[in-house]
Simulated scan of single mutants.
Amino acid sequence: MSDAVETTLNRTRVAAMVDHTLLKPETSDADVRALVAEARELGVLAVCVSPSMLPLRSVEMGDLVLATVVGFPSGKHHSLVKGAEARLAVDQGAAEVDMVIDIGAAVVGEYNAVLADILTVREAIGAGPVLKVIIESAALTDDAIVETCRVAELAGANFVKTSTGFHPAGGASVDAVRLMAQTVGGRLGVKASGGIRTAEAALAMIHAGATRLGLSGTRAVLDGLPDQS
C-alpha cells in the first residue's frame, strides 16, 4: 500500500465507514443506549442492533444510521419469515437491513434458492432501505463466494457482507473481501465484519476493497489510527 493512500485513512475517515455493532443475545435496552452514546462520541456512520431491540425509544440517535439483522445468525429461517422480520424492522425505524442467506443452499450450489431468499427480503422492504447480504464467506469456496455475490447483485442488494461473526468457520478475511470486491466491481458495497479487532486489520480490509466495516470493538480499532492525515 502506498503512503499516499495510507494517510487518507485517518480516524475520522475510517469511523465514517463503521457500523458500530451489538448483537449479543444478552443485550439489554441499557446496553443499546450505551452503544448509541458511544457511537455518537466516536463519530461512526451507523449502529447495528438486533431486531428485537427496535424501535429505539428514548434514544438520541443524532445523525446515526440505524441498521439491524434478519435471519440472524444461522440464515436457516424461512424466506417469508425473513421478509416479515425485515419489513417490521423497517417499519420500526431501521434504514439498513443485514440479512443472512441460506448458507447451506450456497454451499451446495443452489443459487436459485439463494436468489429467491434475497429477493423475498428485497421485495418485503422495497427499494428504499439499504440491503446488505451476509454470505458467511469463511464457510464458502471461492467459486461459491463469487456466485453468491453475483446472485446478491441480481437480487437488488446494495452490499455483500462477509460474516455474521458467529459462525465457527470464522469471520472476515482479506482474501474473501478482495474476491468479493472484484466480483461486484464497485456496483455494490462490500462490508467486512467478523473478528476485526485492530486498526491494522481494519486497514487491511479497506485496502482489499471493503467500503463498510462491522465492528463491535470500534473504540480499540479507531484508537489505533491517526487523528488526521
Rank of each mutant, 00 (worst) to 15 (best):
H78S: 06
A169W: 00
A124Y: 12
A176Y: 07
S2V: 05
A208M: 05
G189R: 05
V133G: 01
P168K: 00
S52A: 13
M61L: 15
G109N: 05
P51G: 13
T218F: 04
Y111R: 00
A155C: 08
G194S: 01
S58R: 15
S2G: 10
A16P: 05
I103Y: 07
R11E: 06
L23K: 05
S193C: 10
A15I: 09
L215Y: 09
G62Y: 01
A152P: 02
D29R: 15
A46N: 14
M180R: 10
T120R: 15
V184T: 05
V133K: 02
L213G: 03
I103T: 13
P226W: 06
D63P: 15
P129V: 14
V59M: 14
A116I: 04
A127G: 09
V59H: 13
G217E: 01
D223V: 00
G43N: 05
E41V: 14
L203T: 04
A30K: 12
L23N: 05
A34H: 06
E6L: 12
A46T: 13
A192N: 07
V70I: 15
I101T: 08
G195E: 01
A169C: 03
G171A: 01
D63W: 08
S28R: 12
R13Y: 05
S52I: 14
G224C: 05
A113W: 07
A34P: 04
K24D: 12
A199Y: 02
V70Q: 09
V133E: 03
T68I: 14
V44N: 04
L179P: 09
I125D: 10
R150T: 01
G171R: 02
G75K: 05
V18P: 03
V90I: 15
I206L: 11
G217W: 01
H78M: 11
T183G: 00
L213S: 04
T218R: 02
V177N: 02
R87M: 15
L80G: 07
M180T: 11
A210P: 11
G128N: 12
G128W: 06
G156T: 03
V97D: 06
V114H: 00
N158M: 05
A4M: 07
E26G: 06
P51Q: 12
I118L: 11
T162G: 02
A39Q: 10
G209V: 03
T183W: 00
R150K: 14
A34W: 03
M99P: 08
V14A: 07
A208N: 07
A89F: 15
C149F: 00
A155D: 04
S229I: 07
V184I: 06
R212I: 11
A89E: 14
A210N: 10
A210T: 11
